[in-house]
């Protein structure tokens, strides 16, 4: 197995996976749109075919890259390209969440006080449309859409979840140090622990949703509070789910001995992603639950 030469550029082989990926994404979206428009069966079938195509594509494409990487095809320049790709992908994710956080801040700073009669704009709405609505947070608006509800407090499950995610970041870092020290046992143990912590977080989150829906009447329909709460925690939960799946893949790859002390970018990329998800949660805990 010859080492790649750093002075020669590397261009990967042709691949059928990108076009399969686009077909999968197209079918997924087409199915989802049909389902939303009331074509239930057709929509679900197309969506499922799309989802399976995407999953199959991931196995195929990533497996292909892993094989190339194990053959030692990638030089340090390719490695840097991968790192930049992941960095800027996470950067784009930050802005995706920023849209929802921005919406939350805008609503809480401007919209709800205006509806409550503050400022030039507020006076009109409050006098002519919703007389006597007093601004407070949480709120489901002047027409109390979704009916009376109770918001979850921060100091129960959300606090436990914060501790779970924070400790999962620590266990992941310990696993990374173990990988760099060449300590397989410790690596697999702590990576497994990280997965468990992530899965527990998800379980508790599901429980919290169930509790909110069944006991607190706090649903997606609960005005602006329910909307911002569920879109932020929901997309975060989706990211934790993806992160956990990625960690499981890393665990399997560690168990198979894919990584050595120097070459384990896939592991690092997943770790970056996990820490990013962790930071988003801290913002959620502060801005959605506490404040």
């Amino acid at each position: 197995m010859s080492q790649p030469d750093a002075n020669v550029y590397y261009v990967p082989h042709k691949s059928r996976w990108p076009i399969i990926a686009t077909i999968g994404m197209f079918l997924f979206m087409l199915g989802a749109a049909n389902w939303l428009n009331g074509h239930d069966i057709a929509g679900q079938v197309i969506l499922a075919v799309g989802a399976l195509t995407i999953i199959g594509m991931m196995f195929g494409w990533f497996g292909n890259v892993i094989r190339e990487s194990m053959k030692g095809n990638f030089n340090s320049q390719v490695d840097t390209s991968f790192r930049m790709g992941m960095t800027w992908f996470i950067f784009s994710e930050v802005f995706f969440f920023a849209a929802f956080f921005g919406g939350l801040f805008y609503v809480r700073t401007f919209v709800v006080p205006w509806l409550g009669g503050v400022g030039d704009k507020g006076v009109l709405t409050n006098d002519y449309i919703w007389q006597g609505f007093s601004a407070a947070w949480p709120t489901n608006g002047p027409e109390a859409i979704g009916g009376a509800f109770t918001a979850t407090g921060p100091w129960g499950i959300p606090l436990i979840n914060t501790l779970l995610l924070l400790s999962s970041s620590i266990t992941l870092t310990i696993a990374h140090h173990a990988l760099r020290a060449g300590d397989r046992k410790r690596l697999i143990g702590f990576l497994g622990l990280t997965i468990l912590l992530g899965a527990t977080f998800l379980g508790l989150q599901v429980h919290e949703y169930w509790d909110s829906y069944v006991h607190l009447n706090m649903t997606l329909h609960s005005g602006i509070y329910g909307a911002t709460f569920y879109i932020l925690t929901g997309f975060h939960g989706l990211h934790v789910t993806l992160g956990t799946i990625m960690l499981i893949v890393m665990w399997l790859r560690c168990a198979r001995g894919h990584f050595d002390r120097e070459h384990h970018f896939a592991f690092e990329a997943v770790a970056w992603y996990w820490h990013f998800v962790d930071v988003i949660w801290l913002c959620l805990f502060l801005f959605v639950y506490i404040l």
């Binding site: 919209v111 709120t139 859409i145």
Partner: peptide
């Protein structure tokens, strides 16, 4: 949801 519906506290 009520992101863009003032009756629900959105805008």
């Amino acid at each position: 949801t009520n992101f863009f519906n003032a009756a629900g506290g959105g805008d």
